[in-house]
Design a protein around this nucleic acid. Structure first.
Length: 108
DNA sequence: GTCCTGACGAGTA
DNA sequence: GTACTCGCCAGGA
């Protein structure tokens, strides 16, 4: 595919797809992994495009605070929370994930 | 072809 | 402690 075209987005998908089950990562974390800690915004935008629904676990990507995006979820905030919860992700609240326990790290 | 907005995050006032 | 601004890249109007 046009890797030389959307170099940035491809990198996002590549990293997000590597997030294991039961783990979550923040937009800023993904951005940092790709070498652009300031581009967290574009990470979210890349997932918004979501060219590969079902392959890219966008539900495992949350805010730096561990909060999930209500209203911006693919099917609904409840669905996102249920999917994460079913994978073993601990929730502090209905909209907050336990980042300190389920935060994904490279090489984990 | 150009301008503006858009799933964020961290720093500063 | 809270509010606002800047940075980044790509896509849509």
């Amino acid at each position: 595919m046009s890797i030389s075209h959307t170099h940035f987005f491809e990198r996002v998908y590549e990293i997000v797809e590597q997030i294991p089950k039961g783990r979550v990562a923040s937009y800023g974390q993904v951005a940092t992994l790709m070498g652009a800690p300031r581009c967290a915004r574009q990470v979210g935008f890349a997932l918004h495009s979501n060219p590969r629904p079902g392959i890219i676990p966008c539900h495992r990507v949350v805010f730096a605070d561990g909060r999930i995006c209500e209203g911006f979820a693919f099917g609904g905030p409840e669905v996102q929370r249920s999917m994460l919860e079913a994978e073993g992700v601990v929730f502090l609240d209905e909209t907050h994930v336990d980042m300190k326990t389920c935060r994904w790290e490279v090489g984990l």
